[in-house]
Design a protein around this nucleic acid. Structure first.
Lengths: 182, 182
DNA sequence: GGCTCCATGTAAGGAGTTACATGATTCA
DNA sequence: TGAATCATGTAACTCCTTACATGGAGCC
């Protein structure tokens, strides 16, 4: 079984053309939409695994710095396609939102600290929204750019929903007393 | 540094009262809002770590089956509170949504498979919405129940935003040609 | 007495993170 | 010629997962 990271790497190499392991790493580093770190200890071993499974092939070294350009094999393309097509029910279940997780326990803070925490959650959410609004404003022509744009729109939709939710529940949270807990 | 799981365990034990490791495990198993598996290999070692750090203390065995009831130490309560209060900027960045990840590469599918995939994404999202609507409908009286309810509302908000986004981008996705990629 | 829960773990394996290591190339 | 960047990795560590293991308590 391939991990999400493995499949994501296949997707990036398919979408943005043959690139080196270094290029994939940079892609992760620049990207605001992917969930993984761009650490070499993550990317290089993953690419090694994909090569071992014959999902990626390394062409000749080329470019000014002689990097090894990776591309999908036929099996790699098949793997990418079946990953896209297969959507298990778990895929739909909501993702792990660290703010939502924290909110479940916010009554552990006294009123003052609680208000500060909620304000902080709203601030960091708003900041993320600002970032993605900039990204979403940049429209490109190519397929890769447009797909990227759609992803940014999705991230924005999620973040805005979270902010609205935070604003809605703030008065309810402030009304809670931590009386039933220890 | 405590992981999200560690802190979440502290939160559960604080919120739902002293409970055994088995109780924590069951909580994860029943919960639809937490992101972790309920496997014993996850919960028991985590609790062991928390006990080693003196964030959890195990009282006498009690109850009919003589389970060890865990509760937060003073340091555990402090840890929980500082976790809730400290919200790093990364907290705001959008979470890893597997559907959004896949959408970024959907042009790798031909029109027919792509339409099927999008329909599937919508279906699994809708199913998750149905689940959380049931959960959100159940209103409780205690603090724990109300916090749970707020969490369900947050999950619902996120899922609905995702569904709306999918519906919005569907025509745009279908118009994309996979021409610029290999 | 056997079946089902309750209750608590351990073992093996894989994956991600941080930090470290190394060499080549470009450019000021 | 030295600094920055390109480019590719390895090592140690922690955590999570699946699967396996064990024993007691209640019930029919």
């Amino acid at each position: 079984m391939l991990t999400e990271l493995d499949n994501c790497i296949l997707g990036i190499i398919w979408r943005d053309g043959p690139m080196s392991a270094y290029g994939v790493r940079n892609h992760f580093e620049r990207s605001t939409t992917v969930a993984w770190s761009s650490s070499t200890g993550t990317v290089y071993p993953a690419i090694r695994r994909l090569k071992d499974r014959d999902l990626l092939s390394a062409g000749k070294r080329s470019g000014p710095r002689k990097s090894q350009l990776l591309q999908l094999t036929r099996a790699g393309m098949d793997a990418l396609r079946s990953w896209l097509a297969a959507a298990e029910p778990e895929l739909g279940s909501s993702t792990a939102d660290p703010i939502r997780t924290r909110v479940q326990f916010l009554a552990a803070l006294d009123a003052e600290a609680r208000a500060r925490a909620i304000a902080r959650y709203r601030t960091v959410t708003q900041e993320a929204i600002d970032t993605f609004e900039l990204k979403a404003a940049a429209q490109g022509e190519g397929v890769a750019e447009r797909l990227d744009h759609l992803g940014a729109l999705g991230a924005l939709a999620e973040l805005r929903a979270r902010l609205t939710w935070l604003e809605t529940i703030e008065p309810l949270l402030m009304n809670l007393r931590a009386d039933s807990a220890q």
